[in-house]
Amino acid sequence: MSFSWMAWTLPTAIFFITIFALIAALGVWEYFSPGGGPRVGILRFETTRGDRLFVSLLGSAFIHLAWLGLGGPSLWWALALSVVYAIGVFRFV
């Protein structure tokens, strides 16, 4: 079966592998520590680990878009900012 119609590139493959690896890691985390780790953080409502990953990924996407729109085509600083943001989300949200 050929997947050439999907027009794969190495950067996009790495991008998706990272996303799937994060979801798989969340599955493993859930297996060893069931229940989703619910807690009420700075947003003042209950979030689970899955919610925090979703907020991290969605926020990171917008950080990258904002960087592209306001900064420039190089995304390394946006990536660094997103990692800091995701750590913040998992720590405080």
């Binding site: 050439s4 119609w5 999907m6 027009a7 794969w8 590139t9 950067p11 996009t12 991008f15 998706f16 878009l65 592209l68 729109g69 420039g72 085509p73 995304l75």
Partner: peptide, 27 residues
């Protein structure tokens, strides 16, 4: 959706030929 992401960083004129464009289309 994955295919759309792949297309978003490339340019094509059809015939299943693609050229890397990076983040140009987003900018």
């Amino acid at each position: 959706l994955m295919t759309v992401v792949n297309y978003s960083v490339q340019d094509t004129f059809g015939n299943n030929q693609f050229f890397w464009a990076g983040t140009d289309w987003f900018v």
